[in-house]
Each structure stands twice: as structure tokens, then as C-alpha cells.
Nucleic acid binder design. Structure first.
Length: 419
DNA sequence: TCTGGGGTCCTAGGACCC
DNA sequence: TCTGGGGTCCTAGGACCC
């Protein structure tokens, strides 16, 4: 291997071969599982799976569990079958969020240009930090040491000249390592790998590439871009070809948690048991609408397009959406639209596995409200729901709910209602 | 008892306007 | 009268990521 892999000895001096590498990708190792066991030393070397109970999937598994073939996103049923002795722990999202926030702050102590990709990984643009630190590699080792000391979990780091390469490098560094891809070694690093290792190539795209006889990234690189575009579409084809040569015009954009308004806010829920009862579905749509509207108001956004998603027992999924003439963040309006879209499907005894509600076309609520004023819309609901938000804030989330949600036995996923 | 829940982005067709 | 095109919005679906 011509690129350099480095693990454990964090004090090792920085290599000279990271010149021009200004992107650092940091990825926590088995984040959910590592956090779950860090205060439970007796589980240190045990197979541990973090995941949901009924009808759930594996969110994270320790390396001891992965030995048995357990992978994230795998159904819990399958995971338990592969590793019956595994300790299964439910995720503690409050704790995970706190650890995530602390880790992101550690990143920001090195550079302000930190782009979190999820709770447990981020890109750092370190081009402005090289006066304080001797090299990008030194920054990576610094961060690895600090996170290990402060959070008592390990992470892996990729150092490269582009985000895509840094991301692929950190994957190779796992667990608890650091990999540098020198600018002179980009094709040597990329080309031997399988097409599915490219970021953005999932199961379907990989299968399509395999059908073209393309198995390695080198194969993709040496295929005329027109051929790729014909098979995958103009944009995807062009991007794949570029990535196969290490060209990546993605820029790292500093984002600070909840700052930037999101493009959509939604919620969905898998029923504990498939249902064909429209009343059960409508009640769930109301619950989801309530949840989404509250989250929108908390984020100070309003939206115009409401989408309902329905997944059937055979896993086929369909969506129906409607764009309103006004912006809204109000439960009755979101629910009325969602319910109308659902009943408009005219389903007859179809077995439904999951329903979801999502609101898109989000705008800052202040701007959106001004537009509402021009429409002379009444304000009653907005004010009423703000009062609800305050009550929930004071008395907890079960303080105020729509009357139809107060009936017993409506809890989805077979879980019992919280006290 | 196979297959969660939160998102983003792309594609493609039709409506509508210029 | 016929023909052509571009741009934008809306809807539906699909792929992908963690």
C-alpha cells in the first residue's frame, strides 16, 4: 500500500506526505455502542448491539458483535440470530446528543470550518489551521487524543485533499486509526477499490455498474463519461467519473447544529403490527402531524408542501404531496392535508406497515407569517398552538394532546404509553 | 416477526408562461 | 397557422446517507 495508515501511537510525528491535504474527516467508531458501554467496563469486550426492540434495526454494534456478522441497519431479528449472546441496549439519544455536541466543539477548537454530517462524523477544513499545527496529520492525531481523553471513545480520521477521499480514508482507518491519502497517491488509493466504496454508490448503483461490467473504481475511471451518463443519468454519471479520478468539487460548509433552517421536517412510524384500519392510520397521522408541527415551531419555520408516505406490508412505498397556497406550522392544517391525501388514495383493506408526514418548502417563520398576513388568514390556531408549546414545555409532552390521542391502546409499535 | 427514523438530492413528466 | 424552445413549479418516485 502506498498511502500511509497509522493507528494507536498518537505521538508519532507528522509525516511529510500530507502536503496539500487540507480536509480532515473524523468518524466516531461504533458511536452509539461506544457511548453505551463507556461507563460499563464489564461490557468492554462483549458483543453489544444498540438497537430498537420490536421490528427494529441495529443502530450500532461493537466490534465484538461484528465478528459474528452483525452490521448496522440489519434487522434486530437477524442480528439476534447471528449473535444470540449479544447484550442489546436501547439508544439514549439525550446522552448521545450531549457527547456529539462536545465532540463538535472539540473540532471547532481546531478550525471554524466544521461541517457535521451526522451525530458522529464531520468534515474539517484545516487549511487555515496550519500555522498553529504543524500538519493536517498532526491535527488528526491531536483530535484523536483529545476525544479519547475527554469522551473515552475512539474515532478514526481520514486526511486527504478532498472530502470524498478523506471520507474513504477514515473508513479504511477504522477502528481507532488514521489514514493519509497523499496527493500523489490518489489514483493508487482509489483505483483498486470496489465501486461500492465510492460515496454515493449504494446497492442499486453498484448493481447497475456491475451490469456494465464495472467492478473497481479503475473500471469506472476508464469508462467514457458518456457511457456512464447514459446508464446512470447525466449528473450521476458525470459525478461518478469525476470521483473515480479523485475530482470532487464538494466544498466544506461550516454548519452549526440547528442554525441553518432545514429543507424539510417529517416524522414517520412503523406500526407494531400492520393495520388495514383507516381509523388507526388517521389517528397516527394526527399524532405525527402534531409532532411535526411542534418541531417546526421550535425551529421557527413554516412550510407549504405536505407529503404523506405509506408503506405496505410488502415494503412497497408510495407518497402523495400537496402544495398549499400559504405557509403553515399548525397541526390542524397539516393534519387536514395529510388526512385528505391519505383518504384520497382510496385504499381498500390494504395492509399498512408505516405512515409518515413531512413538510417541505420551509421558510423562516417570520417571513412566512408576513405572507400569511397578506392573505388575511385568521390567526387563532397559531396562537393556540403556541400556548400548547408553552404548556408542553412546562408540564411535559403528555400535558396537552388532541382528544383522539387520549384514547387507550393507540400507542404505535406495540410500546406502552409513557406514564 | 427480516427490513427504523431522520434526512438530502436527483429524475422525469406535465402544466403553464413567455 | 404552425412550430419550437426555455424556464419554473408541482407531483411522484427512487437512490442514498447515517
Amino acid at each position: 500500500m502506498s498511502w500511509s495508515r497509522r493507528s494507536r501511537p498518537r505521538s508519532e510525528t507528522a509525516a511529510a506526505d500530507d502536503a496539500g491535504c487540507t480536509v480532515v474527516h473524523v468518524d466516531m467508531d461504533a458511536f452509539y455502542a461506544s457511548v453505551a458501554i463507556r461507563d460499563r467496563p464489564e461490557l468492554r469486550d462483549a458483543p453489544v448491539i444498540v438497537g430498537g426492540g420490536h421490528r427494529g434495526v441495529v443502530l450500532s454494534a461493537t466490534y465484538a458483535a461484528r465478528v459474528y456478522g452483525v452490521r448496522s441497519a440489519m434487522s434486530m431479528t437477524r442480528a439476534r440470530r447471528l449473535c444470540p449472546q449479544a447484550v442489546v441496549i436501547a439508544p439514549d439519544f439525550a446522552c448521545l446528543s450531549a457527547v456529539s455536541a462536545a465532540v463538535m466543539e472539540t473540532f471547532r477548537s481546531v478550525t471554524p470550518i466544521v461541517e457535521p454530517l451526522s451525530m458522529d462524523e464531520a468534515f474539517l477544513d484545516v487549511s487555515g489551521s496550519l500555522r498553529r499545527f504543524s500538519s493536517p496529520t498532526a491535527i488528526g492525531e491531536h483530535l484523536r487524543a483529545r476525544i479519547a481523553d475527554e469522551q473515552r471513545i475512539t474515532c478514526s480520521v481520514g486526511v486527504a485533499s478532498t472530502p470524498q477521499l478523506a471520507k474513504m480514508a477514515s473508513r479504511q482507518a477504522k477502528p481507532d486509526g488514521l489514514v493519509v491519502v497523499p496527493v500523489t497517491e490518489v489514483t493508487a488509493f482509489l483505483h483498486p477499490q470496489g465501486v461500492e466504496e465510492l460515496w454515493g454508490v449504494g446497492e442499486k448503483t453498484a448493481a447497475a455498474l456491475h451490469r456494465l461490467g464495472l467492478r473497481t473504481i479503475a473500471d469506472v475511471a476508464h469508462t467514457p463519461v458518456e457511457v456512464l451518463q447514459r446508464a446512470m443519468g447525466p449528473r450521476v454519471g458525470a459525478r461518478l467519473h469525476a470521483l473515480a479520478w479523485g475530482d470532487d468539487d464538494r466544498r466544506i460548509v461550516a454548519k452549526r447544529g440547528a442554525d441553518e433552517p432545514e429543507h424539510s421536517i417529517g416524522a414517520d412510524e412503523t406500526f407494531g403490527r400492520d393495520t388495514d384500519d383507516p381509523d388507526v392510520v388517521l389517528r397516527e397521522l394526527l399524532r405525527l402531524s402534531t409532532k411535526v408541527a411542534a418541531r417546526m415551531r421550535a425551529a421557527h419555520v413554516s412550510g407549504r408542501t405536505i407529503t404523506v408516505r405509506v408503506r405496505f406490508s410488502d415494503f412497497t412505498t408510495l407518497t402523495r404531496s400537496r402544495t398549499l397556497g400559504n405557509f403553515t406550522a399548525v397541526t390542524p392544517e397539516i393534519y387536514a392535508t395529510a388526512a385528505d391525501l391519505f383518504t384520497g388514495l382510496g385504499l381498500q383493506r390494504a395492509r399498512i406497515r408505516l405512515v409518515g408526514v413531512r413538510v417541505e418548502g420551509l421558510r423562516d417563520a417570520v417571513v412566512a407569517t408576513r405572507q400569511l398576513r397578506l392573505d388575511e388568514r385568521p390567526f387563532g390556531w397559531e396562537d393556540a398552538e403556541r400556548a400548547v408549546d408553552r404548556a408542553v414545555h412546562r408540564f411535559g409532552r403528555y400535558a396537552v394532546r388532541p382528544a383522539t390521542l387520549l384514547e387507550p391502546s393507540v400507542a404505535p409499535s406495540g410500546q406502552s404509553q409513557a406514564p
